[in-house]
Design a protein around this nucleic acid. Structure first.
Lengths: 107, 107
DNA sequence: GCCCCATTTGGCTAAAATTACAAATACCTG
DNA sequence: CAGGTATTTGTAATTTTAGCCAAATGGGGC
């Protein structure tokens, strides 16, 4: 495999990694249901230290999944990649199927 | 947030984490284009040690994304969650948009 | 049974991710 | 400008992940 191809998968992985955390999935989910949310609101939602949430947010932003806007002393984050929502449906279908199979094995 | 909700995002994250690696994305991509592939073929594709690839595969399988079938002394893996393909399109669109913006900043 | 081949697992090391606390920054208010 | 609030960044400890080599497992063929 050539370097370009390898780089493409590396780039993709970077974006997927940005999503690969429960707190960050929660944040993205929240932002898919609301036009925007400030750091303070998201901090309360996630329930971790604000510094931790801020890092999660900048990670998502660096991946290109969120955008931010500073208004006054607050910073508002918005979801930039709306298509992510469909991905969640796929994930849910996988979970549903996994649960089915678990149930089968149990019977 | 209650424990059930927290668990839901934890479960989702586990699946996303399974995808969050260039080699694993490559594997899933390959399996979306072919009905099945044995470990030896995937090992050659990825270009890492077979033991490493085997671990990637069992990770994806445990997440419910792949299924395997042993025939003779070989093990064949198949993609179980076809909808993942759409996710890749979304990722690609994010990458495309990121590149655009980079270009803008450069000019 | 013995040897060979494909795959998985154990054990270990190195690298990356996560988190909280503390300190810095930035902006608003009086 | 002083004080307060929202957010980010520095730092350091802990945990998780990745990778390879070597050894184990499980079939197949002679």
């Amino acid at each position: 495999m050539d370097r370009a191809t390898r780089n493409r998968y590396e780039t993709r992985a970077q974006i997927v990694k940005a999503l690969a955390h429960p707190a960050r999935l929660l944040i993205v989910d929240e932002l898919s249901r609301h036009p925007e949310r400030c750091v303070c609101e998201l901090t309360e939602l996630v329930g971790s230290d604000m510094s931790t949430v801020s890092r999660h947010l900048s990670l998502l932003k660096n991946a290109g999944l969120l955008e931010d806007e500073k208004r006054g002393q607050m910073v508002f984050y918005r979801l930039r990649a709306k298509c992510i929502t469909k991905f969640f449906e796929c994930i849910e279908s996988v979970i549903a199927r996994n649960t089915e199979i678990h149930a089968e094995l149990r019977v």
